[in-house]
Nucleic acid binder design. Structure first.
Lengths: 150, 150
DNA sequence: TTTGAAATCCGAGGGAA
DNA sequence: TTCCCTCGGATTTCAAA
C-alpha cells in the first residue's frame, strides 16, 4: 500500500468506472501497471467490491433506520447470521455497549420496516430487545473515505 | 424504473465494472440500450455514484463508530455542514429522537477518532452533547440493497 | 426508445528490462 | 515490479425504424 495504491483507491472511490488509462496518465505510469495494481488490491481483499450508491428516495428505499439489538450471548452468532441474510439489512456490526449488535436498514417505508425487518428480528431466537433509530433525512453518504477535501 | 432498469441496477450493485455487453446479453436487448439506460439512471440521480467498498482493516480505517449528536435547533444546519466536511464522517442523517443528528465515522483507531472527529464536534458551535457507539466487528456491509437472495 | 453497425479506444496478457 | 506492445473485445455514437 504505497502512494500509487492509495491514489488508485482514491480515484476508484470517487468513480469506480474510471479507466486504467486515465489513472495511469495522471500517475505517470503504464496502463498495465495500474491494471495489475487494481487486480492485486482486489485479490488482496483491500477492495472488497465495485458497487454503486443509489439515491434512496429515487430507488424506492427511502427509509434508513439503525437498530440496536441485545441478545443472549450464546445465540449471538445465530442472530447475526439471520440479520446478514436479510436483504433490507445493509450493515451489521458487533459492539460492546449499549447494544450487542447494531444494524443499518433500508426499507421503502415504516410498514416495510415492520414487516420485513422488525417482525423477523423479534421472532429470532436469542433476541432480547431492540431499539430503533429512524432517520428523517440523509445529508451525506459515502462508502469509504476519500482523502483530500472534495 | 421498469424491470430493465431494476435489473441493470441490481447487476451494477453487485459489480459496477460489469460490461454493458454482458448485461445486454442477459437481458436480451442491444448493448447501446443498456448503455443509454445506465447514463439515464445516472443523470436522473437514481445512481448517485460508482464507487468501491474497502476492507476497513486492510485500508487503514479499522474503527467504525456511530455518533449521536444533540444540537441547538437554530444551529442544526451549521453543525451538519461541519460534519459533512469531515473526511472521516462517511454518513450524516437527521432524526427526531433520541438525537438530532446521527453520523457514521471511520478512523484508524480511537486516538484518530478523538483528534479528528470528537474534538472537532465538541468545538463546533451549537453542539450540546454527543454519544458514541463504538463497533468491534463488521459482519456485513453493502452500499445498497441487492434484490434476490445472494 | 431501441436497434445494429462502425470506429475508436480500452483491457488483458506475455516477454523484456 | 514495471513497461511496451499487440490482439480481442468493449464502449460510444449515429442514423434509421
Amino acid at each position: 500500500m504505497d502512494l500509487t495504491d492509495r491514489t488508485i483507491i482514491e480515484k476508484l472511490t470517487r468513480d469506480s468506472r474510471i479507466h486504467c488509462t486515465e489513472i495511469a496518465s495522471e500517475l505517470g505510469v503504464a496502463t498495465s501497471t495500474v491494471h495489475k495494481r487494481v487486480n492485486q488490491l482486489y485479490n488482496d481483499g483491500v477492495i472488497e467490491q465495485f458497487t454503486i450508491i443509489l439515491n434512496p428516495e429515487k430507488s424506492g428505499t427511502a427509509l434508513t433506520t439503525f437498530i440496536g439489538i441485545n441478545v443472549d450471548s450464546g445465540r449471538k452468532d445465530e442472530v447475526i447470521n439471520t440479520l446478514k441474510s436479510l436483504n433490507n439489512v445493509l450493515e451489521v456490526y458487533e459492539l460492546l455497549e449499549p447494544y450487542d449488535i447494531f444494524v443499518k436498514v433500508r426499507t421503502r417505508d415504516i410498514s416495510e420496516l415492520k414487516e420485513n425487518v422488525l417482525r423477523v428480528i423479534a421472532n429470532t431466537k436469542g433476541v432480547l430487545n431492540t431499539s430503533s433509530i429512524l432517520t428523517t433525512r440523509r445529508h451525506k453518504e459515502n462508502a469509504c473515505i476519500t482523502k483530500n477535501g472534495d
